[in-house]
């Protein structure tokens, strides 16, 4: 049986990779991928702890809610990215420094 600490370590590593992507990338889509990685790290923890709750399934059900939230976030964020690209012709967040009219 794999212990919970191993799941926690994998999840921490995933979270740090996601945070690195958010902090260092120059592309809005890659920043979005970083955010998804961080959400997935949280999901992994929920599922790992949910193994010890077979009556209520709280961990797994809230993982489902988180996945739906991630899908909604991605849809809205990609629509915003496309609009920004139409406006500025770039998706580098560092170069978007002008307010619209």
């Amino acid at each position: 049986m794999i212990s919970l600490t191993n799941y926690l370590i994998v999840s921490v590593a995933l979270f740090c990779i996601g945070m690195y992507m958010v902090l260092s990338k120059h592309n809005a889509i890659q920043i979005l991928i970083g955010i998804e990685l961080m959400l997935n790290a949280a999901n992994l923890n929920l599922v790992a702890f949910g193994k010890y709750d077979s009556a209520n399934n709280a961990g797994q059900i809230f993982t489902l809610f988180t996945i739906v939230m991630a899908a909604a976030t991605t849809a809205v964020a990609l629509a915003i990215i496309l609009n920004v690209y139409k406006q500025y012709k770039t998706i580098d967040p560092d170069k978007i420094d002008k307010l619209g009219d």
């Binding site: 799941y7 992994l44 599922v47 949910g50 489902l64």
Partner: peptide, 17 residues
Amino acid sequence: LYIVCLADFVAITQIVI
């Protein structure tokens, strides 16, 4: 990894969504 945690429905949802 989800399947290893015995959460097969969550794993399928992960793949689909």
